[in-house]
């Protein structure tokens, strides 16, 4: 499949990684990241976050729950240690931005604005500590506020990554676009839980976790479809993409590009395999954008 243009940036193909599933040190042992359209890096916060206690992972039918809690070394370490090598290798880099308050998002955006990162992705699924811990992404007003605030601190394109844990995804997407979002990515994980039969307690130390993997793909397809018909900005579709045909389905739903997440945790080379399989799917089924 030919490359794409997004915000005037050329991607050699429409495949990127989903935030939190690409590790700049480990993932390149399994595939050449330069072969992807873009690399989306793990969420970074203004200061290092310790994340949640273990266990953080539980398996579910055709999926997994994670409650990592966005453990990350902070934006300064990201800018010093991770970003330079990715950019030196000529990759398009999308930095995923996390925060617990609007000012925390802005602090990260301000620092990333001074780097050569290409695109920023706001993770609005984080708990909004000033609003009792409810995720920003479930309230159109909060999404509008965080997006417009972030836009004031950078000229770089901003993608807002939507939470699927809402009644009306279109309303949230419209709020993001009205606030100046240059693109939309969706879906983040769905909130879920598993309970240990022996202890009677949740398996995850955090109680709940985010469900990902092929189990959530039909929900993701439906939401991408709805949002693509309601807003006029590029969409990165994701949610349980395991094969090139899965990716192709997202393009049919209206996504401009796709992100591979959980698949790369199961088969570390999945992102590049999916690039190849997507080419085959396009040959087989035709250009999805026509």
């Amino acid at each position: 499949m030919n490359g794409i243009e997004m915000f005037g940036i050329h991607w050699k193909n429409p495949v990127t990684t989903a935030a939190g599933t690409f590790n700049a040190k480990e993932s390149p042992k399994y595939y050449n990241p330069e072969l992807l359209g873009a690399i989306t890096t793990k969420g970074v916060s203004p200061i290092p976050w310790r994340g949640n206690p273990l266990p953080r992972i539980a398996e579910t039918p055709s999926g997994m729950l994670n409650a990592v809690g966005l453990e990350n070394p902070g934006v300064d370490a990201y800018i010093e240690q991770e970003l330079p090598e990715l950019k030196q290798r000529g990759m398009v880099v999308i930095a995923n931005v996390a925060g617990h308050e609007i000012e925390e998002y802005c602090a990260v955006v301000r620092k990333l604005d001074k780097t050569d990162v290409d695109i920023l992705e706001l993770n609005v699924s984080c708990p909004n500590l000033k609003e009792g811990g409810l995720a920003f992404g479930v309230d159109p007003k909060a999404v509008h506020l965080v997006t417009s605030a972030a836009k004031q601190h950078t000229k770089k394109p901003i993608i807002v990554k939507l939470s699927p844990n809402v009644t009306n995804i279109v309303e949230i997407a419209k709020a993001a676009v009205a606030a100046g979002a240059d693109g939309i990515s969706l879906i983040n994980t769905l909130v879920g839980m598993r309970i240990d039969l022996n202890t009677g307690k949740p398996i995850l130390a955090n109680g709940t976790g985010g469900l990902s993997g092929p189990a959530i793909r039909p929900i993701a397809i439906r939401m991408v479809y709805e949002v693509a018909h309601a807003v006029d900005v590029p969409i990165i579709g994701m949610g349980g993409i395991m094969t090139g045909e899965d990716a192709y389905e997202f393009l049919l739903a209206g996504a401009t590009a796709v992100a591979v997440g959980t698949a790369a945790l199961i088969d570390p080379a999945a992102p590049v395999r999916i690039v190849q399989e997507l080419e085959e799917a396009v040959r087989k089924y035709g250009d999805p954008r026509k």
């Binding site: 690409f22 273990l54 453990e71 790369a264 945790l265 199961i266």
Partner: peptide, 16 residues
């Protein structure tokens, strides 16, 4: 010993 996710350093499921 830890409950792991990917077992190859990507998911940050098993830090200490």
């Amino acid at each position: 010993e830890a409950r792991m996710g990917c077992g190859m350093g990507a998911c940050v499921g098993c830090t200490c």
